[in-house]
């Protein structure tokens, strides 16, 4: 079985646990981390426009020479890999997170990902927009895990008292 595991900050532990629980031994497992350029570009953009700042130098100061996000992504992948007994392959991508994950999932047998939205109640908001996109467009079977025990069923709002009436 060819399995892709989406490793992301804050939720990766749950995905790694899911590998141990649900992936048959002997499967080919790949851990994927996508470095998101948005926060870095946000920081870069804010700095490059300041009045009075020598442009080039200020830009270099705002944006670190080495891309920290990629470096830390690699560290994260290595730590995640250390948590599983079997060998896994590590994969790093850079760009729009949801597009990269979907592209890498093509041709796999299983994609493992975690809910990363508002997880106080069961419902569609428990998926952040990027995760929602991946789930909606995944070109393979997906396993969607809760990073923590799922909220109680009672977190679903009661159905409307009167079902919507069809116009007669």
């Amino acid at each position: 079985m060819d399995v892709l595991v989406w490793i992301a900050e804050g939720t990766w532990q749950a995905c790694v646990e899911a590998v141990a629980l649900h992936v048959p031994p002997g499967s080919a497992v790949t851990f994927l981390h996508v470095a998101e350029p948005a926060p870095r570009e946000l920081a870069r953009g804010a700095g490059s426009g300041l009045l009075g700042a020598p442009r080039r130098r200020s830009r270099d100061r705002v944006v670190p020479e080495t891309d920290l996000a990629e470096q830390l992504g690699r560290e994260l992948l290595e730590r995640a890999a250390g948590r599983v007994g079997a060998p896994v392959s590590l994969l790093q991508r850079r760009g729009r997170v949801e597009r990269e994950v979907v592209a890498e999932a093509a041709g796999k047998d299983l994609l493992i990902l975690a809910r990363d939205g508002d997880r106080r109640r069961l419902g569609p908001r428990s998926l952040a927009p990027a995760t929602r996109f991946v789930l909606d467009h995944a070109p393979c079977t997906t396993l969607l895990v809760w990073p923590e025990p799922a909220p109680h069923l009672s977190s679903i709002p009661p159905p409307p008292a009167h079902p919507p009436q069809r116009p007669s």
Binding site: E36, A38, G45, G49, G95
Partner: peptide, 18 residues
């Protein structure tokens, strides 16, 4: 602001995820 005006230009240059 001046900062954000330029920022927009930078973003267009790099086509980032912002």
């Amino acid at each position: 602001s001046l900062a954000t005006l330029l920022w927009r230009r930078v973003l267009r240059e790099h086509d980032t995820g912002v």
